[in-house]
Design a protein around this nucleic acid. Sequence first.
DNA 1: ATAGAACGTGTAGCTTATACACAATTTATA
DNA 2: TATAAATTGTGTATAAGCTACACGTTCTAT
Lengths: 244, 244
Amino acid sequence: MGTALQKTIQELRSENREYFQIACSVDCVIFGFDENELKVLLIKSDLEEFQDQWSLLGDLVKPDENLDSASYRVLKERTGLDDVYLEQVHTFGDVNRHPAGRVITTAWYSLINIKDHQLDLEHNELHWHPVNEITTLAFDHKKILDTCLKQLQSRIDEHPIVFNLLPEKFSLRELQSLYESIHATKLDRRNFRKKFFLMDWLIDVNELEQDVPHRPGKLYRFNAAKFSDGKVKENKPKVEEAVH
Amino acid sequence: MGTALQKTIQELRSENREYFQIACSVDCVIFGFDENELKVLLIKSDLEEFQDQWSLLGDLVKPDENLDSASYRVLKERTGLDDVYLEQVHTFGDVNRHPAGRVITTAWYSLINIKDHQLDLEHNELHWHPVNEITTLAFDHKKILDTCLKQLQSRIDEHPIVFNLLPEKFSLRELQSLYESIHATKLDRRNFRKKFFLMDWLIDVNELEQDVPHRPGKLYRFNAAKFSDGKVKENKPKVEEAVH
DNA sequence: ATAGAACGTGTAGCTTATACACAATTTATA
DNA sequence: TATAAATTGTGTATAAGCTACACGTTCTAT
């Protein structure tokens, strides 16, 4: 029976050297929204095995660094952004998932406003890819991307997190187009607008879109005050009859 | 910039010895349902720091073992059960979460039919604890338990997974009582029954409860055929208008 | 024979989701 | 400066699902 965890670190180290053969990493699926498309930030892999393939942004976890901190660090290093929405999704740990050795990776997704992030993309070999045009990635990163996208899809219907992908002021069309691109569906305009007004998630800022070649729409901002910490809490009006 | 993952394992090993200082473990929250209560299987911690406290069942991941396999192995070793429902929930990786050293753990929950599992509980210092009576556990296991319970709560409304906690034949009262104990709420009997009949998840086996001190209820079994792989897929009748 | 306990059933009101069309505003262009 | 093109803004009727709620029936225990 494996009771390794029930021993002291000294016993562990001496009896079970073998256990310290695994490295831990984090990989971030960084979503952005631009030109009416959901995009993800990728980097060219410089590992021989995956020459010319793109991969997610990741790094090994340092021994003195919390797992969460590692993913925030990767984001900060790559995007320069500090205050981002970040959520853990899943840990991938197949023995052969990394050709260079045993690496167990924890995947996260992040939502950023692409406009906030003005990096020298080329210099770092970073690139924003439309999510629905990605067919292969290095390592098991396509599977990781798919898993994170699925999680994002299920979260946005319950929690007001999409606003992290938008500029402070946005039109209802931009918002709808964002939902449509995440869900890969079309939504009815009137019903979409009605729903959002009923939910009371939006505040009319009394401004209009600029530079659109048609009648400009009104601009709104996210009604953060409705949510306890002003950021990404949920809005569940119904509590009773839990079984659906 | 940390690009450790972009190198070969040889480079990693030589340049970054420090990275191989982290151990990986799995911890399983094993749920069972007995005497109208949701219970979880715990073991007495024999680590000095947590003397007389209970902890989840876990073990270190072996270098040549997939992460998934490690959690199945823990379950098999502890319960003797092979074919169980097991879902990954979250990975906990704070630097100081384990007093014996740096251990990053991936938490899973499992649903088993307590009757299938006839172990010498005492001999292994294993014990079934009512979930809602647990206030503290060793390590960060209380937090892990809470996280897994929350995940279980949100899953059961969308996926027919609770049947993994029940014997093959069960009454509607047992089923309702199970939902109630997971959600820690009371449900209306008539509405509950109507919902399940409409969902068509149940098959009447034309038998009655035995040995109950009142009018016996009819017994049902889970309509596994409704779900593609016969086990734990979802049942989503609505596809349109994704934003709620 | 009676009390106690849980079973089995249906309806009305409310809320939420869906389907759907037309006039108004702005820009671009002839 | 008139017109076409594009997109905005708005409401209603129907269907589906959720909630609240009561009483006669069946079995056990005494």
